[in-house]
Design a protein around this nucleic acid. Structure first.
Lengths: 142, 142
DNA sequence: TAAATTAGCACCGGTTTGGTGCTCTTTCAA
DNA sequence: TTGAAAGAGCACCAAACCGGTGCTAATTTA
């Protein structure tokens, strides 16, 4: 539990990189040259992020991806939600529990789930990029 | 991400039931008669909890399982840790990141992981049993 | 000794996950 | 108008993970 999939890690890395690179559009090729992540896979991931509206895509020469919004406004919760689907902390909690009619944890577990989700909602891409309490971010090597 | 496995849900249900049943030892048979969870699987789960020292086991007739400690002192974090192994939020965070030498999220992601783990450490079995803010727990039907 | 119980281990089928191949569409520039 | 540079879409594969079961000990009580 509580482990990001590779897709999400790759996606975060790309988003973080885009946040620092800023400005113009950056192609998958360019990103993977700076990040070494499997190229085709990252393409798939960015496509999803594009469909979800987190990044903007432009095709053709000079095209690529660009953040659609301010990194300080983009929460980890949204990103994870896009790349891994809606969080289902426990069957119990989602209302369609078929584990047991006599389940003993329905009550408490919902609160735990809410607290966890709140943490993810509380972090923004910007904070992921800059690290805890304003640690200096290395400048993009490109 | 952030989804309990069935093993953990079952384990929690059993622990919660044991917390309420209290006192003597309760066999897997007895527990599953009250919880309908696959018997053999719950046996496996309780064995793990026993090896980890969260419950006490006694074999033979009249034997079974019993909580080894106060439900108010047993954190969700420990339970999840036993049943799902140590939490690895991201490869990055555990020091052995092989995703990229130029990873851009190492810095920030650690803090997120710590916050998430803190939430789990903050909840105890007792709170899971009683639900948010002292909702009345149904008495065991046995 | 017989029955009740946990312990240990191997196994199986289905789903998820990481990753790739191939083709199509869009766009720009020569 | 043509060619190359990009993203879009879809199908596919191998490996890992997960829920669940079977079978056989080992331990304990009566």
């Amino acid at each position: 539990m509580m482990r990001l999939t590779r897709r999400t890690e790759y996606g975060l890395m790309a988003l973080a990189w885009l946040a620092r690179a800023g400005g113009r559009f950056h192609s998958v090729r360019e990103i993977t040259e700076n990040l070494d992540v499997p190229r085709r896979l990252l393409a798939e991931i960015l496509k999803d992020l594009s469909q979800a509206g987190l990044v903007e895509a432009v095709r053709g020469p000079g095209g690529g991806y660009r953040l659609r919004e301010d990194p300080g406004r983009l929460t980890l919760g949204r990103i994870v939600n896009v790349l891994e689907g809606p969080t289902i902390f426990a069957e119990c909690y989602q209302g369609d529990c078929d584990l047991s009619p006599r389940c003993t944890i329905k009550r408490g577990i919902g609160e735990v789930a809410r607290r966890l989700e709140a943490v993810l909602e509380d972090f923004t891409l910007e904070e992921v990029v800059h690290g805890p309490a304003g640690a200096p971010a290395p400048s993009p090597s490109s």
